[in-house]
C-alpha cells in the first residue's frame, strides 16, 4: 500500500522539488527538537530569573511566614524528607516482593497475566484518583487523619507500579546461567534468588526505587486531596503528625496574589529541582553500575 502511494505521489515530480522537500522535512524535524530544547531553556530561565534572588541559607532554614522576605522552606523540606522515608519503607518491600514473585516464582498463568496487566493499568491512573482512594481509606476508614502516615501510604500505592516494573526489568537483566548454576548444585529457588540473583539486580532495582521516589517528591494533587494543605506551625515528630511538603509549600506561595511570594515559590522550586536532579543523577549512575556489572 505504501509502495503504491510512493510511486503515485512522486511520479513526474522534478528532482529539484524532491530535493527541496527533503531539505524542508529535515528542517522541520530539526525545528521540533529545537522547540523542545527551547521550552527547557525557557523553563530554566523563567525559574532562575524569578527565584535566584531569594536563595540563601536563611531561606532554607526559616519557617513559613506572613512576610515574604522572612519566609523559608525548612518545614517543607523536613516534611518531604519524612514523607520519602516512610513511603520507601512501604513501597520498597512491596515492589521488590511483587517483582520477585512475578519473575522468579509465578508460573505463566492467567492470574500472573492479570496481575501484570493490572500493574500496567495502575500506572496510568491519574494521581488525583489515588488521592481520593487515600482520602476514603487511609484518612477516613483507618482514621489516620491528615497525617504523614496517610500521605506516605497514598504515595506508596501511587509509585508502586513504577517500582515494580523497574525491579522486574532488573531481575530480567540477570542472565539465566546464574540461576541454573545455583539450582544445579541443589539450592532452592529462594536461595538462588537471595544469594545470586538479588545481589546482581540490586543496582538496577535501586534505580527504579529512586525514580519512583523522585516522582513522589514532586506530587502535589493526591496530598491536597487527603487534606494535607494548610498552615503547619512546627516540624512533624512522628508518622501521625500533620505535615507540609515542598510542592504544597510551592502551591501555597504560587496562589498568593503578592509578587514577593512568587519569588519564594520560584526559590523553593529551584531547591526542589536541585534535589530531583541529585536523585536522578544517582539513578543514572546506578544504572551504569548495573550495566557494567552484568556486562552489557
Amino acid at each position: 500500500m505504501s509502495d503504491k502511494s510512493l510511486s503515485t505521489e512522486h511520479r513526474g515530480q522534478p528532482p529539484i522539488w524532491r530535493a527541496l522537500k527533503e531539505r524542508l522535512f529535515l528542517l522541520v524535524c530539526l525545528g521540533s527538537t529545537g522547540f523542545g530544547l527551547l521550552a527547557l531553556a525557557a523553563l530554566t530561565y523563567g525559574l532562575v530569573s524569578e527565584g535566584w534572588s531569594v536563595l540563601s541559607w536563611d531561606f532554607i532554614t526559616a519557617f513559613p511566614s506572613r512576610f515574604a522576605d522572612k519566609a523559608g522552606i525548612y518545614a517543607a523540606l523536613v516534611g518531604t524528607l519524612w514523607l520519602m522515608v516512610i513511603t520507601a519503607f512501604f513501597t520498597v518491600p512491596l515492589g521488590v516482593g511483587t517483582a520477585i514473585y512475578l519473575e522468579e516464582f509465578a508460573a505463566k498463568s492467567r492470574i500472573t497475566r492479570l496481575i501484570q496487566v493490572n500493574i500496567t493499568n495502575l500506572a496510568g491512573v491519574p494521581s488525583i484518583v489515588y488521592g481520593l482512594l487515600g482520602l476514603a481509606i487511609f484518612v477516613r476508614t483507618m482514621h489516620l487523619g491528615r497525617s504523614l502516615l496517610a500521605g506516605a501510604l497514598t504515595m506508596s500505592l501511587l509509585i508502586l507500579p513504577v517500582v515494580i516494573t523497574s525491579a522486574q526489568e532488573a531481575l530480567r537483566a540477570v542472565p539465566h546461567t546464574y540461576r541454573e548454576a545455583s539450582l544445579a548444585v541443589g539450592a532452592t529457588r529462594w536461595e538462588t534468588v537471595r544469594n545470586h540473583v538479588l545481589p546482581q539486580a540490586l543496582p538496577g532495582m535501586l534505580t527504579g526505587i529512586i525514580l519512583g521516589l523522585s516522582r513522589a517528591i514532586g506530587e502535589t494533587a493526591p496530598l491536597i486531596t487527603i487534606g494535607a494543605l494548610g498552615y503547619v506551625a512546627g516540624l512533624p515528630r512522628g508518622p501521625l503528625d500533620s505535615f507540609t511538603v515542598m510542592p504544597i509549600q510551592i502551591y501555597n506561595w504560587a496562589s498568593m496574589p503578592q509578587k514577593e511570594f512568587h519569588a519564594d515559590a520560584a526559590g523553593a522550586i529551584l531547591v526542589l529541582m536541585a534535589v530531583l536532579i541529585l536523585f536522578n543523577g544517582t539513578a543514572i549512575y546506578m544504572r551504569q553500575v548495573a550495566r557494567k556489572r552484568l556486562g552489557s
Binding site: L40, L43, G46, S214, P247, I250, A254, I269, M273
Partner: peptide, 24 residues
C-alpha cells in the same frame, strides 16, 4: 546529549509547570 535533556522535561513536577504557566 539531546535525549536526556528532553527527558528532563518529563521529570519536572507538574506544580512547576503550573507556576511557569502563571508567571511566565
Amino acid at each position: 546529549v539531546v535525549k536526556p535533556l528532553l527527558e528532563l522535561l518529563a521529570g519536572v513536577p507538574t506544580i512547576v509547570y503550573g507556576f511557569f504557566a502563571l508567571t511566565f
